[in-house]
Simulated scan of single mutants.
Amino acid sequence: MECQIPEKNADDSEVLEILKQARTIAVVGVSHKEDRDSHNVAKYLKEHGYKMIPVNPKYKEVLGEPCYPNLAAVPERIDIVDIFRNIEAIPGIVDEAIAAGAGCVWMQLGLAHNEAADKARRAGLNVVMSKCAKVEHQRFKKEGCL
């Protein structure tokens, strides 16, 4: 399956509100390798006041935080599920996010899955597709909004 073009996506005001309200961000597919985007985004989010929760069954710890094998194993409420996985994994991750009671699914830059996004919205979650949480946060911070 190829990445899709978002049919409906969060606009700037929605993205800003999501970033303002969020406290915990689960980074699904995070890597311990410093040259990976997932690692750099997770590090940035942690350094900018969010509780970053690494999710990857390969690791016990990432960036000094306990790493969980999946969203169901995370013992606290998740505000944003930030997805760094291949497009085929997105529907399952969205199902996990819904089951976990997350507030938002965020598909990283280059990732969009319209059917999974619609399912998340029907379950009451906010959805951001094909945007980088780090880039958006930096942009709003530079504009003085965060």
Rank of each mutant, 00 (worst) to 15 (best):
P75H: 05
L63R: 09
V15P: 00
I80R: 00
K20M: 04
V74C: 08
R23Q: 15
K33P: 02
C67F: 12
P54V: 12
I53L: 10
V27C: 10
D37T: 15
E76F: 10
A26V: 05
Y68Q: 02
Y68I: 07
V15S: 02
I83V: 15
V30H: 03
G49I: 10
N40A: 05
E14W: 00
I83K: 10
P69Y: 07
D79M: 02
E34R: 13
K33T: 09
S31P: 08
P66Y: 09
K60T: 15
V74L: 05
Y59T: 09
V27I: 15
R77D: 14
I18H: 01
L63G: 04
L45H: 04
P69W: 06
R36F: 00
H39W: 13
E65S: 13
G64Y: 14
L63E: 10
E34N: 04
I80E: 00
A42K: 02
A42D: 05
L63W: 13
V41Y: 00
R85H: 11
H39K: 02
L16Y: 10
L71C: 09
E17F: 10
P66S: 11
C67Y: 09
N86H: 13
A22M: 06
D35C: 01
H39S: 04
H48N: 15
K58R: 15
V30Q: 07
L16A: 09
R85C: 14
V15A: 04
L16C: 03
N86I: 10
N86W: 12
K46W: 06
S31I: 01
N40R: 15
A22V: 03
N40V: 07
V74T: 05
V55Y: 03
E34A: 11
E14K: 03
E76S: 05
I25R: 10
V28H: 06
N70D: 15
K20R: 15
P54Q: 12
L45K: 05
P54T: 14
P54G: 11
N86C: 12
E76P: 10
A42T: 06
N70E: 13
A42P: 00
P66L: 08
I78T: 04
Q21D: 14
G64D: 12
V81F: 01
H32G: 11
K60E: 15
A22E: 03
S31D: 09
R85S: 09
A22R: 04
L19F: 01
R36D: 02
D82C: 07
K43S: 10
P54F: 14
K60N: 12
D35F: 06
E14L: 13
D37N: 13
H48W: 04
I18A: 00
L19W: 01
E76H: 11
C67H: 08
D79V: 03
D82I: 07
K51V: 14
V41E: 01
Y59S: 03
I80Y: 05
A26Q: 00
E61Y: 11
G29V: 08
L45R: 05
P57Q: 06
H48G: 10
V62G: 05
P66W: 12
N86Q: 15
V55D: 02
I25D: 06
P57M: 04
H39M: 08
E17S: 15
K58M: 11
K51L: 14
I83C: 05
V62Y: 12
A22S: 15
L16D: 03
V55F: 03
L63M: 09
C67G: 04
A42C: 11
C67M: 11
